[in-house]
Design a protein around this nucleic acid. Structure first.
Length: 275
DNA sequence: CTTTAACCCTGGAGGC
DNA sequence: TGCCTCCAGGGTTAAA
């Protein structure tokens, strides 16, 4: 499932293809995504120039003069470059035509989204889907102090507090487990009980885990965004705990455990990770 | 305010 | 081989 590193890698892949270029045509084959693709979006964007390609959390942002297109990959989405005339496959829902470069959104489960925020509707940060997002993990402002502040007053397990995305964005289910392992923190620890010192460790662990995934993505960037890449083939990080239930911890050899928190699987080492 | 559960959807896995 | 059931999962939203 695309987490922040996959989304950022996608952004870096498409940025040179779209920046400064006019969107000749937008094709919406299946508007029924997480939310309906706004009617008339194709007409609204035809011939308009993309000024920049950004990202906020897991939202890709295509900035136009008159507004911004928000693209979310959900959990099964991928955005790839294909050649014009490349056969359309099942679940190819939206297409951006920039001359010889065509971007195609492929999303079997349709949890993704393609939305529009007009410039005259107010600042982009005020968009309902962006307004409550936490800080970017690579923003210098993200540190142990900020994390510690954000965890105060919450009794939910620290893993769920990370996933909520209102303290720091981009930490999905995989990297939440991996980051907590790296920091040596038990995932069920109540958020407010994580000490300031351990928040320093955790913030560093989150950044390091995401950076590792980004590095892995960078090495496979060509395959990821170009049509040669297998759709749905996301980065294979060298997971320490994720989906390793019953297998020996790479650090201490104790069997990795799987628990369910908030209806989501969490993996951890009972010996390396303490409350 | 915080916390919990339901929901959107399809492909893949497992049971029979 | 085929059909049925179950589950995963990001993230929003309604309900408690």
């Amino acid at each position: 499932m695309p987490e922040l590193p996959e989304v950022e890698t996608t952004r870096r892949g498409i940025e040179p293809l779209v920046t400064g270029r006019a969107l000749e045509r937008l094709v919406v084959r299946e508007p029924r995504l997480r939310w309906p693709v706004p009617p008339g979006m194709a007409e609204h964007l035809a011939g308009r120039r993309v000024l920049a390609c950004g990202r906020r959390g897991k939202y890709l942002l295509l900035h136009f003069e008159h507004g911004t297109q928000l693209v979310h990959l959900g959990m099964s989405g991928s955005l790839r470059r294909v050649d014009p005339g490349e056969p359309v496959r099942r679940h190819d829902h939206v297409e951006w035509h920039f001359g010889e470069a065509v971007l195609r959104l492929h999303d079997p489960r349709r949890f993704g989204a393609v939305l529009w925020h007009a410039s005259d509707a107010g600042p982009l940060q005020a968009h309902p889907l962006l307004a409550h997002l936490g800080v970017e993990p690579f923003d210098p402002a993200f540190d142990g102090a900020l994390l510690h502040r954000g965890l105060q007053g919450r009794s939910v397990p620290v893993k769920q507090a990370l996933l909520a995305g209102d303290i720091v964005v981009g930490v999905g289910n995989i990297y939440a487990s991996e980051s907590l392992f790296r920091a040596g923190i038990h995932p069920a620890t109540p958020a407010r009980r994580v000490s300031r010192a351990r928040c320093d460790r955790l913030a560093a662990a989150i950044r390091a885990t995401l950076q590792d995934a980004l590095d892995a993505g960078g090495s496979t960037l060509r395959d990821y965004v170009n049509s040669s890449g297998e759709p749905g083939a996301y980065f294979t990080i060298h997971a320490a705990v994720y989906e390793r239930a019953g297998q020996p911890c790479r650090r201490c050899a104790a069997p990795i455990r799987r628990i369910v928190q908030g209806a989501r699987a969490t993996y951890y080492c009972p010996r390396c990770q303490r409350p």
